[in-house]
Simulated assay, not measured.
Amino acid sequence: MEDRIRKILTDCGRLSVPTQGLGAQDNLYEVGLSSLATVNVMLAVEEAFDVEFPDNLLTRRSFESISSLASVVNGLKPPALTS
């Protein structure tokens, strides 16, 4: 999942540094993520992972790092069905 999020950030985040050089906890806003880019990242994440961000998760904290984004996506995905 982290690799897919890095790809989305590379394509949509307009960051000032390559995503491969970022740690999972690094603050994305400190490396150039803007509010406009956040919207683009959100839309791309929703499409890539087939999830929808509810209003209560449209916060700076949700998009602050690769780790926080992955955590939000994991929380939005329905639990896997077991046979």
Rank of each mutant, 00 (worst) to 15 (best):
D3A: 14
I5L: 12
I5C: 12
I5S: 07
R6N: 11
K7I: 14
I8L: 09
I8W: 15
L9F: 11
L9S: 08
T10Y: 14
C12D: 02
C12F: 04
C12Q: 08
C12W: 06
G13R: 02
R14T: 06
S16Q: 13
S16N: 14
V17G: 14
T19F: 05
T19W: 03
L22Y: 15
G23P: 02
G23F: 03
A24G: 10
A24E: 06
A24Y: 00
Q25I: 10
Q25S: 15
D26P: 15
D26H: 13
D26Y: 07
D26F: 12
N27A: 14
L28D: 12
L28M: 15
Y29S: 03
Y29W: 09
E30N: 14
V31Y: 09
V31D: 05
G32A: 12
S34T: 15
S34Q: 11
S34D: 12
S35V: 08
L36W: 00
A37P: 06
A37T: 00
T38N: 03
T38F: 00
V39R: 13
V41Q: 09
M42W: 01
M42H: 00
M42I: 12
A44K: 08
A44R: 04
A44L: 09
A44Q: 10
V45C: 15
E46Q: 14
E46I: 11
E47L: 08
E47P: 02
A48Q: 13
A48G: 04
A48L: 11
A48N: 07
A48H: 03
D50L: 06
V51R: 04
V51K: 15
E52A: 15
F53M: 14
P54K: 07
D55Q: 13
D55M: 12
N56Q: 06
N56L: 05
L57Y: 01
L57K: 04
L58V: 08
L58D: 03
L58K: 05
L58W: 02
T59S: 12
T59A: 14
T59R: 13
R60C: 06
R60T: 06
R61L: 01
R61T: 12
R61M: 04
R61Q: 09
S62Q: 02
S62L: 10
F63Q: 02
F63P: 01
S65V: 11
S65A: 07
S67P: 05
S68T: 10
S68P: 04
L69G: 00
L69N: 03
L69D: 02
A70L: 03
A70D: 03
S71F: 08
S71D: 08
V72C: 01
V72H: 01
L76V: 02
K77S: 07
K77I: 11
P78L: 10
P79C: 11
P79H: 12
L81A: 04
L81Y: 03
L81T: 10
T82W: 00
T82Q: 05
T82A: 04
S83K: 06
S83W: 08
S83Q: 06
